[in-house]
Every structure is written in structure tokens, then in C-alpha cells.
Design a protein around this nucleic acid. Structure first.
Lengths: 238, 238
DNA sequence: CGGAAAGTTGAATCACATCAAAATAGGTGG
DNA sequence: CCACCTATTTTGATGTGATTCAACTTTCCG
């Protein structure tokens, strides 16, 4: 286990806190590694540890009675999760699973609260993050309430895409996640994702190449996805 | 305008802060009154004032492209809204409309931040509230993703109901809100609400009396609504 | 009492999930 | 490198729940 990775310097919450203070906090963390697909925490659990993702990425999900998986958020290295329970002491509201091999710092709830509430800068950052999550959630509620399944898939594709380095006019998704993951994010089924993308391909709006999807006709793509938020392209990690 | 109402003592956020400190904060507030149906703040606005509801209640809504109204939260006297923009400086994420005549204290964003971030107790209370909103939103996302329209209506009825003072085994909703409001909360249409309730009435599970609805057969009602959150009956105001 | 708003009901339509089956891609061992 | 196996994706057919549209009824309130 590489101790040099046991650092919180990459965590954006602590940006600018590079001194002894941070080192002391790192000492208070337990450090753990998780494999891809491994469950990091389960819904309804009552411990309130906060998890800092220094390597890899995770997904926050919930399951319907019928077993369908609904993704609530993806969390990449540099961010953290588990703060809700640390703040309010309630049971975990969702399950968190590693998407890739992860290195994660684990901090006890009281230590987290002490570190944060004692410090105006950190408090405000944490609040900002919570506010951001609320905005994203509210947008999602609007999407679910007012958009069709295809549109939700389009939006998800947009969120996954970056500008194409070869052709700045186009967008690419590379690597393309599994369609079932996209389905989870868009709250629909695998089949619907396939149909939405196939239709885009048939209309010449996107091109599929192995594990790669290019959005070539961005104008038409946008008008299909249309109806939406001005916050496209923004990083949607929590 | 009744100056004795211009007090923040009823605001739960400030419970226990009854001294000069609170009086000073009250001075910093602008005090306004709103009529039923009056818009208090509009989506996309850029000022970040925080609003303390000391009298009446309001609803936070958003509108779809087609004009459908989606309710995000109801806020009753003793609570507040507008804190997101005050925290992150982003534009308003939703519109807020008075449900009844309201008396509201308006505090500038900087004053709010100063008051809160300087104080560990208030910080933690605000974070708790944000955490609670996130939990409710996530539950709603799950409901929208996995439940049918009828079930969402049932859940909304449950949220609106109190124990019947006459018959503790039953629940009542009194007064019954307009069906279009219920439809907004459940993200469905007026007609679907009617059908859901009519069917419950036909099955003898509920009784309709003027502006009042009684859930008589709670066992069967619960099994219909089933699939749910353990957080029934909890106050769902933000 | 009369007019407007809210609620009710039925019928047609549509979007999406579900079910089932085939095609493709990816990976493994011979 | 090919053959084989499994996972993922694709496509079609079908059923169902919910919205929409429209007409009608009831309730509310001046």
C-alpha cells in the first residue's frame, strides 16, 4: 500500500490547506483500497464516516424494489462522499460502489465535524457543495417530471462528452460507459438507451466506433436535447 | 404593518438565540408582506437575499417548457428559503410563490453569510437543513424513477395527512388542497389525481367529505402505497 | 341565483417498459 | 490465430400505464 497516496492534498475541499494542519488530518484518516465493483458503504448503515476519494472514482446508487439501479451521483478523485450522515447523524441514504480501483481516506464523523465547523472557509465550501448537490437534484427532478426518456438519454450523453481534440466542433465520449450505466443515470432501461443512440446514428447525428461515440452534428443534437438547462457541459460530479 | 410580527424568534434556525444578537439581526432585515398567489422571487434572478417566513407559507416551484408546474418544496412559517443563492452566488434555481398571506423578513446575502459562518451552531444547523433537503430530493428522484403515478399520489396523500383526532386509527387531510397542487407535488396531472382518489373511494379505502379526505382503511392504503420510505408522516417542509 | 373554477369521467393516443430472440463484441484457452 | 464462451448490444413485437382531449358535473362564491 503506497503511503505517498495517503494524502488529502488532491481533495478540492482542502485546497489551500497544505500545511501541518492537513497532515494532522491525514493522520486521523483510516486509509483503505477498494476494487472495481466493490461496495464501499451500504444504504441504511448507521456509521457516519466521511470518505475522501484520492484515487479512482465511485458511484452513488439506490435500488428500486424491482432491483433497478438508479444512479444518484458519480464521484471522482478529489471529491468526497458520506458527508450527509456525518452532518445529520441519519442512516446512509444510498449505497456507494467503486467504479474503478480506489484509494480512499476514511474520517470519523466527529473528526469531520470538528475540522469543518471550526473553520469558516471549510464551512462555506461544504455548504457550497451541498447547495450544488441540491441544484443538481432539483434539475434532475425537473428532468424526470417533464422530459421523455430519449431526451434524458441525450442529456446524459451531453454530460459524458468532452470537446473532441481532433475536431473542436464535435464532442466525443471516450471511453463510452456501458449502456446499462447510462440507463441508470437517465432512469430508464438499457433498451431505450440503445434505441435512442441507434436513432441518432441513423440520422447521422452521432458516429459509433468501438468504445467511442462522436457527436458530429451538434446543432441537431442540441435541438433534440432541447428544453434544457443552460448548465450543459458542466462537471456534474458531486 | 404590525411591527411586533417583525421578529425572527419563530424561525427554528435561530432557536435559542433570543438575545440582543437576534434583535440586531432583525434590524438588518427588510420586512415585507405578500398576498396569496403573489410571486416572491423568480427563477434566474441574481440577487441572493434570504427570506425568513414568520407568517403564512410558500411554495417553491418550477415550470416545464409546456407550462406544467412542478413543486419542489413547501415552506411553512418558522422556516426560510433563498439560502442556496446566498451560499453559492448562483442565480435562483426556482420560483417562490406565497400560498397564503405572508410576512417575510428579507436579509442580504452577505449579512446572512456573516451571521451563519461565524457561528458553529448556526453553520451546523444550516448544513443539517441542506442535508435534509438532499435526502428528500434523492427520495423524490427514486420515487419518480421507480414508482407509478398512482403510487406517487398515494405517497403525497400520506404526506399531507395527520392522525384523525376523532379516530386515531384513521388519517385525515383537512383541509384538502386543490388537486392540481397535489398533481404538481406528485409530478402528474389533475386527471390522474382524480382517478387515483376515485378508485380509493370506490374501494372504500378513503372517504371524501367536502374539503376533507379520510383514510379509513390504513392497512390497505399502506399496501397500495407500498414500496416506500420509512420516513412517513415526517414533516416534509424544507 | 348565476357564472366561474374545480373536479369527474370516458375514449383515443402515445411513450415506454417488458419480453424474447438474434447479432456482435470481448476475452480465454487451445 | 481460431474456436468457443459469455457479456453486451441491437432489434422487433407486444402490453400497459398515463397523458391528452373533450364533455359533463359539481362546488364554490359573490
Amino acid at each position: 500500500m503506497n503511503v505517498s497516496l495517503h494524502r488529502l492534498t488532491t481533495i478540492r475541499l482542502f485546497r489551500g490547506f497544505d500545511g501541518d494542519w492537513l497532515r494532522a488530518l491525514e493522520q486521523k484518516c483510516g486509509w483503505r483500497e477498494f476494487d472495481r465493483e466493490q461496495t464501499i458503504l451500504d444504504r441504511d448503515n448507521r456509521e457516519g464516516d466521511v470518505f475522501f476519494v484520492t484515487q479512482g472514482s465511485v458511484i452513488v446508487v439506490n435500488f428500486s424494489v424491482t432491483g433497478r439501479e438508479i444512479a444518484l451521483a458519480r464521484i471522482a478523485a478529489g471529491s468526497y462522499f458520506g458527508e450527509l450522515a456525518a452532518i445529520d447523524g441519519e442512516p446512509r441514504s444510498a449505497t456507494v460502489v467503486a467504479l474503478e480501483p480506489c484509494v480512499i481516506g476514511v474520517l470519523a464523523p466527529q473528526a469531520f465535524r470538528d475540522a469543518v465547523t471550526g473553520n469558516a472557509v471549510l464551512s462555506l465550501r461544504l455548504m457550497r457543495r451541498l447547495a450544488r448537490i441540491i441544484r443538481i437534484s432539483d434539475d434532475r427532478i425537473m428532468d424526470l417530471s417533464t422530459l421523455g426518456a430519449f431526451q434524458r438519454v441525450y442529456l446524459e450523453l451531453l454530460r459524458l462528452s468532452h470537446a473532441d481534440p481532433d475536431d473542436p466542433a464535435a464532442l466525443v465520449i471516450d471511453p463510452m460507459p456501458g449502456q446499462k450505466d447510462i440507463a441508470g443515470q437517465a432512469s430508464t432501461t438499457r433498451e431505450t438507451v440503445t434505441r435512442a443512440i441507434s436513432q441518432l446514428a441513423a440520422d447521422g447525428i452521432v458516429e459509433r466506433k468501438r468504445k467511442r461515440l462522436r457527436i458530429v452534428d451538434r446543432r441537431r443534437f442540441d435541438s433534440l436535447a432541447a428544453a434544457l438547462d443552460p448548465n450543459w457541459g458542466e462537471d456534474s460530479t458531486r
